[in-house]
Design a protein around this nucleic acid. Structure first.
Lengths: 198, 198
DNA sequence: TTCAATACATACTAGTTGGTATGCAATTCA
DNA sequence: TGAATTGCATACCAACTAGTATGTATTGAA
């Protein structure tokens, strides 16, 4: 046993748990498999987290949220328009990283479908992430779109856009190919432009 | 033990398995819980299905597919326009049945997110259902939309529309409310109309 | 009516699950 | 430096898992 660095131990558990949960889903994830590869023992894990459920919550807060943040929210915040922001974040997402990310789907969406109906703790945490994403789109819309229609339009569009992105990512997962996501994204972007946010 | 009616026994297994899988997901569904309530025993189940996986396949083919068929595909086939068809199927879906259907999400989408990356048998079966849905939208588009743009436009729009519906159903699940789905659907329909399919 | 195939029913098993009990080592603070 | 407190390791456990072995009852055809 090396030196005791509790923060580092905890970080490794959460990181490994994120991938195990990403691949298997939360319920079918296994503590033993989370531990595999890491140099962490069962005792250490249950010292840091009272239960698998709490570990799951930590994964959402400390791994899924940053994942969405860096891939969608942060780049979007600096975009010149909603259409440009959506086009470039979707492209960057589909371009970047291994196929596993296309085939495995969006970690946020995966957990929403699996856990939102089953566990309120998961639900509120996941909702927090989705809300932050939508808010960023809403702000961007307000800042850059040609003002027309009711002031709630931006929020409505943001809801539509974010849910559409989750949908198109699911289509790619089903097809094991980025093609359907690419096509749907192009349509989504063109539709945003004609709405005056291009 | 009552009279032996194998077809009825099998039907009851698939029906019960559908709900258990709908609620828990496939991997976390339990044979014992599937059997609970039904008057079927373990032996009967494993007589009709060689494994849980094969039962899962049967559920997709014989329960999920009809579910999508009767709620989306069939009504859509008789619609007067794409916009009208989408508006009325979404509304009917959100109106009909218990809240469980809003909170529980779309059985097709649930299984896509959980199983598409893990099991090719599930993936192709789920893809078959989604493809049938998209084809129906494509045909409707061809029949009723004002002809403009390339001939692939209809298929592209169909892909976008179906994935958007799955996305907006996911938003309702996350919010435990039909409101976000309603708003996103209204935007989707208006966007379809401006594209000439209204 | 016999016989074979089908349709179940019961009991069991090997493996996996999340979680705990307990002990020791490293760190921190008085 | 001594004494808590924290961090971690090992061994264990009860519950649950899918699946099997084996038996019997029911069916349909000859």
């Amino acid at each position: 046993m090396a030196a005791k660095r509790p923060a580092e131990t905890r970080r490794r558990i959460v990181a490994s748990a994120f991938w195990e949960i990403y691949r298997q889903g939360f319920q079918s994830s296994s503590i033993d498999r989370i531990l595999d590869g890491t140099q962490v023992t069962r005792g250490a894990l249950f010292h840091h987290f009272p239960s698998k459920q709490h570990l799951g919550y930590a994964v959402v807060d400390e791994a899924v949220a940053p994942w969405i943040d860096e891939r969608w929210i942060t780049p979007l915040a600096g975009a010149g328009s909603v259409a440009d922001g959506i086009a470039s974040t979707v492209n960057a997402y589909l371009d970047a990283g291994p196929d596993e990310i296309i085939i495995g789907g969006c970690p946020l969406n995966n957990l929403i479908q699996e856990m939102a109906a089953l566990d309120e703790g998961f639900r509120v945490r996941l909702d927090r992430i989705a809300t932050a994403w939508r808010s960023t789109v809403t702000d961007l819309w307000h800042r850059t779109a040609t003002p027309a229609g009711s002031p709630d339009d931006a929020a409505r569009w943001a809801g539509f856009i974010v849910s559409s992105i989750e949908g198109l990512l699911g289509a790619a997962k089903l097809a094991r190919s980025r093609a359907p996501a690419d096509e749907a994204a192009r349509l989504l972007v063109s539709v945003i432009r004609t709405a005056g946010a291009g």
